[in-house]
Write a protein that binds this DNA or RNA. Sequence first.
DNA 1: TTTAGCTTTAAGATTAATTTAAGGTAAATG
DNA 2: CATTTACCTTAAATTAATCTTAAAGCTAAA
Lengths: 223, 223
Amino acid sequence: MKLLLVEDEKQLSEALTQLLIKNHYSVDAVLDGESGLDCALTGIYDLIVLDIMLPKINGLEILKELRANEISTPVILLTAKGETSDKVQGLDGGADDYLTKPFASEELLARIRALVRRKGEIIPDNVLTISDFRLNLDTYELEGDSGSVRLTLKEYEILKYFMYRPNRAVSKDDLIVKVWGFDSEAEYNNLEVYISFLRKKLLHVGTKATISTLRGIGYKMEE
Amino acid sequence: MKLLLVEDEKQLSEALTQLLIKNHYSVDAVLDGESGLDCALTGIYDLIVLDIMLPKINGLEILKELRANEISTPVILLTAKGETSDKVQGLDGGADDYLTKPFASEELLARIRALVRRKGEIIPDNVLTISDFRLNLDTYELEGDSGSVRLTLKEYEILKYFMYRPNRAVSKDDLIVKVWGFDSEAEYNNLEVYISFLRKKLLHVGTKATISTLRGIGYKMEE
DNA sequence: TTTAGCTTTAAGATTAATTTAAGGTAAATG
DNA sequence: CATTTACCTTAAATTAATCTTAAAGCTAAA
């Protein structure tokens, strides 16, 4: 998680940098608006902490420029006490949150956490996760610790069905109805072939999860 | 979790209501199609169990009306035996699942769980409990204080039969009919072998419950 | 039309559940 | 007490379900 800190008061900048590093963020700190804008425009940051009062270019202009360039990195503005108009302008200009100096470290950390989280919610990652592997619903890819594979449509649908019901017995009939349709002529063997394919792919991406067979009952995905 | 039950056979309706309440669902039951549609249109239910043959408005029409009003509450249709065209129409019309009468309670519960789960909620496993051990109906596992074991299909069915009748005598003939089917050629010895298997597994998971033999009568599971 | 990639079919191999069978144990009977 | 009968337990045999692979069949895109 990479943060950009744009703050000209050297002492405060260093203190915040220390604080953020201690909390496992990777931090780039710059001391004036011009450098701030340059860095911010790269778009590589997960979040920007931006002071408003800055030499050369002020924070609000940076923010405006950023949004004009369609960079949607979340921004927390730091404003001096009482400057309510800054706050309004800032939020109107696309800031995600603001903090009035002086503030408690915990306050800043909490807001950073909230924004980083919110970002995750705005762009919901369409991924189902079970133990040590993931099924990416957007790309039809099965992702594990030692790689990822494309799944075909049938493989995907079968695995998805399992992933909604981890550690539960699933009957072949139910699976066939869900994947091939209720009026399909698909035989058990069709499903069995795909289970075989899936097991290979699960192995290939290096997950510990397995599809175990329950003879006469069906299958069960075990984490 | 709020369910709507639309079923005109009063006896069945009441039986199902009891069953669902026992399984911790909150249930509204109505006896004709008109009321059914009114209730369903409120959209407050998490799932609807809908009979097809109904007075006033039939189930398929209710379903159609619902979907036309963009109400996407999951629907399980109840259909009389053999009415395949109903089934086809129903699933085409936006039903999520269907069940042919007569059906086992467990079957209905399982399908409700499956549909509700699809909405992303976590549903606890369905488990039968007797004194100090449990039969997990979703995983086919026997769970005790000192571990759990997989049961095979026959073991599972026999144990389930006992657990629905704790401390009661059970005849061998009944068990054989239930597990092997009424026209099976299974000998008493077949059952006896499985009782032996089960006793071992019960011991293994560390329960105090036992299956005692009643000479000339059958067996009894004692807590 | 050709091609590539899925899906289905089919057949033989494998494996685990189930059944059979046989020898032993304990309860009931007389 | 002897004997019958029901039941238990184990291991081997059988059966049926499932696995796996390869090839054939499809379908949509090039």
